[in-house]
Amino acid sequence: MEILMALVVGGLYGTGVYLLLRPTPVKVIIGLAILTNAVNLLIFTAARLTRGHPPIVEETLGRPSYPIADPVPQALVLTAIVIAFGVLAFTLVLFRRAAETTEADNLDEMRTTDT
């Protein structure tokens, strides 16, 4: 399972980076979205995949003999998803406004502030 996840994560990273390097604003935004999802999956995978185990153990039982699920990475991923969603929404609006103001649908043309 980990190998499959690793391949998926790697593929998503590759796609995200490729799209980020495109000059079309829409592709860049999709690239950002894919990249953040790749990161979320990576956190999920790196923190060990468990299936069908409870995350909470009765205190009186002591350390259980079976593996337990770790709830922390899911909390991390959830937070990261929320943040990424907010940031992505902002980025969409910003890109739209930028495209309207500069009348360019190509990031390579937005270089009047470059040095």
Partner: peptide, 12 residues
């Protein structure tokens, strides 16, 4: 205009 163009790079 400048703000938006600069902003795009800053944000990405």
């Amino acid at each position: 205009r400048g703000q938006l163009e600069g902003g795009v790079k800053y944000v990405i």
